[in-house]
């Protein structure tokens, strides 16, 4: 369950990692929500990595994972962390630092 969408690296390119816990309802919702947000607001300038923590339990400690699903924005800076199923669009956009008007 690893899906990588590669785009050209640039300062404006969004590098996102979504950590999910297996095929739980929250995970499934989060994946579909973030994908639609990316497609809608960040078309062609994002890099989304979806990681199932069950498959890589060590990463949970490394990334200080507690609440899942968790989305980590690595780029552009400043980084940020978003938890939940990404259903609250306003908060997702705010967390990602995307201006809604764009």
């Amino acid at each position: 369950m690893k899906e990588v969408v590669k785009k050209i690296e640039s300062p404006n390119n969004f590098v996102l990692r979504l950590f999910v816990a297996g095929a739980s309802a929250n995970s499934a919702r989060a994946i579909s929500n973030i994908k639609s947000v990316c497609e809608l607001y960040l078309k062609d300038r994002y890099n989304l990595e979806i990681i199932d923590v069950y498959q890589q339990p060590l990463i949970a400690k490394e990334e200080q994972l507690i609440a899942l699903p968790l989305l980590i924005k690595k780029n552009p800076l400043p980084g940020s962390r978003l938890v939940g199923d990404m259903s609250d669009l306003k908060k997702v956009l705010k967390g990602l630092g995307i201006n809604e008007d764009i």
Binding site: F19, S24, N26, L68, S80, L82, V83, G84
Partner: peptide, 11 residues
């Protein structure tokens, strides 16, 4: 951290 919906402590 921004809370964007339902989550659990599966981590």
């Amino acid at each position: 951290i921004e809370e964007t919906g339902q989550y659990d402590l599966e981590g």
